[in-house]
Amino acid sequence: MSWDCREGELSAAAAPPWLAPLVDQPGAVKAAYRRRVPAEVLAALTAANTTAAVTGARRDAAVLVLFSGPGDGERGTLPDDADLLVTVRASTLRHHAGQAAFPGGAADPGDKSPVHTALREATEETGIEASRLRPLATLEKMFIPPSGFHVVPVLAYSPDPGPVFVVDEHETAHVARVPVRAFVNPENRIMVYRSENTRRTAGPAFLLNEMLVWGFTGQVIAAMLDVAGWSVPWDNDKLYELSDAMALLDAEGSYGDAQR
């Protein structure tokens, strides 16, 4: 049995109605993600993916995309108290140091599947009890240079995931269940680019009280908001270089009421 097998691990029927658009069309998230990526960036990603495959540098990985909230509701209507589990990686890590991310990481030799990897990593990083969670679907793989990870996002749900916390400060700096409305709030949405790139390569980001969510994680969240029907109009002309955007985290009152 290959690591890619999900047989018997997913229960789409456990999804509340408000998550149904994401569960019913998992391929749509990657499609929405790719539509947002500038053509030159997409070409570079494709080339890097091919090179990594040829050289054997590409590695399997999985992340847990955990939504919590009520078990009822209406399709496409976001509940006020829905939240999403997000971590901030320790600044000392080799790859993606200091970035906000979904809990997850590289597959271990003993992992049976992406679901197994995502749940194991989430438990190790956030102390969450995997038995409280219901894996719903796996989104399509996405390649992330420079780490070489070929990542499978695992969509999961829990009406009550219990407490989460930093287990190992050498790996994780912060853990939070962030209200999904904070990502929807147009006051918290900006565009970010890195100084070594051009402004044309800027991607969606979310400036919250304790973290800047950008890069792969920001792209995936933005794509999910679109696919689920939760997005509202926002000013995508709010453009910042990454270090300038990070500096805003320390500027009191600079980004609105981030948790609403």
Score class of each variant (00 low, 15 high):
R75A: 13
P146S: 14
A101T: 01
E40Q: 14
E210Y: 12
A13P: 06
E74V: 14
L239S: 05
P16T: 03
R94C: 11
G73V: 05
T117C: 03
D160A: 13
D244T: 10
A82C: 07
W234T: 01
T201F: 00
G110P: 01
A228L: 14
T217R: 03
R194W: 15
A32E: 05
L242Y: 11
P163W: 09
V37Y: 11
A47E: 10
L136T: 00
L66M: 05
G71Q: 11
P204S: 08
W214F: 08
P16H: 02
T87W: 07
G73D: 03
A52Y: 12
G98Q: 09
V227G: 04
A251G: 13
V164F: 12
A258E: 08
L242I: 14
V41L: 10
L10A: 01
A61R: 02
W214Y: 09
W214A: 13
E40G: 01
D244K: 14
A53C: 09
V54T: 15
A57K: 14
G229I: 10
W234G: 02
A258L: 06
N197F: 15
D81T: 04
I144F: 12
S68V: 04
E9C: 08
L19E: 11
A82V: 03
R132N: 10
L22I: 04
S158V: 03
R260H: 15
V86Q: 02
S11K: 13
V151Y: 07
D83M: 13
A245G: 09
D168M: 06
P179V: 05
A53E: 15
G104F: 03
S231V: 05
A62R: 05
G253L: 10
D4L: 13
V175R: 01
S11E: 14
M211Y: 12
A182R: 06
R134I: 11
E241W: 06
P114H: 03
V154G: 00
R6L: 00
D168K: 13
V152Q: 11
P204F: 06
D60A: 07
R89G: 00
A173V: 04
